[in-house]
Design a protein around this nucleic acid. Structure first.
Lengths: 245, 245
DNA sequence: TTGGTTAGTGCATTTTTTACACTAATTACC
DNA sequence: GGTAATTAGTGTAAAAAATGCACTAACCAA
């Protein structure tokens, strides 16, 4: 084994952020149009180099803020991508982060190195720069898992929302339809929603009730180890007995 | 933002492997006694620098092999740890990997930079070098999650095992007791075990039947999207209604 | 006032989970 | 050879959760 450690200190890290939003019934992801080589002019996840004197998690926040103007976003690490030839400039390992935000709450202001920052519909994407297709896909998997484990849907919706909007969000993430009555029963039984005593306005049909998410209660339940699991209801699953042959 | 990218190429990566085993009813982890600075003489996870010309996943395998003699071990990435002052020699980000192995199948041969490589009972550990306590803890969480999702128990047991051994393994990972009848019912209903038509020998009580894991069937079920979820049975969970006040 | 549209609601059946205690097979020891 | 010690192995009833399904309610527009 090498005794000269200096040889190892010749690599770089980047962070790449996968920021999900939800609008008009579609799951969206925030992308930038790169204004720098390599991959100049291509759409990419908002990411950049980590400085040697900053923590990884802090770098993810800073980079997101510098490229898109978004601040105070909760970011969660997903995976490190470390193939040798990911990057034209040398050995670069990237660590991906993901987040869920309410699109309306944030104004996006691309910086100099990002020509544009824009929401894109996930189902309708072109090829992205670097290996960002792979990175995005792994975050989509994470989101799919997360939505079955925690009531993350609320993070993506405006403060007041209808049950139908919430259901559509779940359907977009899980990519499968849910039964209306069963969905409502399960969500309401968690006691996480507060009835706002308001209804939708300006719709050409019966207006729906508006609800908001009770974060206090959510925190309390988390503390008590409550299991938020929400199973899919749509496709009937086969039992192991039926699969035996 | 910097235009001189060279400034970013001054960091190093390491990989740290958390190898779990199971023996005598206890969950074990493989540690090395470090033979190099920093932290010379301390117990640590088997990890080392990633070469600039090798893939991250490949590095994890190589390092494990060089430090402990273990080869052909399946490794799964867990998390990247990137605080600034983790390492005395400079900026080092480590990516942790974990694996489950059958202790009997592998002969451990420490290399020159590892003074020793040894199995340690997880519940009975001293402080580890670097931030390896944190890294180990995150892998324990991952294992706890994994065991509820996939029948990973089989990875840790010898080819032929009894249902009681399997149950004890689950209890060690979940850190809570399980009901014998319910555990057996659920495990057997997955149809993943094959009765070996043999019984234990040399025990001073009724000998238990030996089973083996049917990997073919497992692969088939995975392919069909079968849900292996195994819930804990022990502590009665409160419903959301009971938690309402 | 009628048609179009989405909101909102209940119940019966099936499946899964849970709680629980005795008999069976073997060895060790007297 | 008998008995004590030890772990293996088994079933059922009750409770909880999941599932499948179809009609009425409220609003707007034409």
């Amino acid at each position: 084994m090498a005794t000269n450690f200096d040889n190892y200190f010749k690599s770089a890290f980047t962070v790449d952020n996968v920021i999900f939003g939800f609008d008009e019934g579609d799951l969206k992801v925030l992308l930038i149009k790169r204004g720098e080589e390599p991959h100049i002019g291509e759409w990419a996840l908002p990411g950049y180099f980590v400085k040697t004197e900053e923590d990884l998690d802090a770098a993810a926040k800073r980079v997101l803020s510098e490229l898109t103007g978004l601040t105070n976003v909760y970011l969660e690490q997903v995976h490190a991508f470390g193939s040798v030839n990911r990057h034209a400039f040398g050995r670069v390992i990237t660590v991906s982060y993901f987040s869920l935000i309410k699109i309306d709450n944030y104004i996006i202001q691309p910086s100099s190195i990002a020509l544009q920052a824009q929401w894109h519909t996930v189902n309708d994407l072109q090829h992205l720069a670097f290996d960002h297709d792979t990175i995005l896909e792994s975050c989509l998997q994470r989101l799919k898992w997360l939505v079955k484990t925690r009531p993350v849907g609320f993070e993506l919706l405006p403060p007041k929302f209808t049950l139908t909007e919430l259901q559509h969000l779940y359907e977009a993430i899980l990519r499968s339809p849910l039964d209306k009555r069963n969905f409502r029963k399960k969500i309401l039984s968690m006691n996480l929603l507060v009835d706002c005593d308001e209804t939708q306005e300006g719709v050409a049909h019966r207006p729906a009730k508006l609800y908001k998410f009770d974060r206090k209660r959510y925190n309390k339940l988390v503390e008590q180890g409550f299991n938020f699991e929400l199973k899919e209801t749509p496709i009937k699953k086969k039992t192991s007995a039926e699969l035996s042959n």
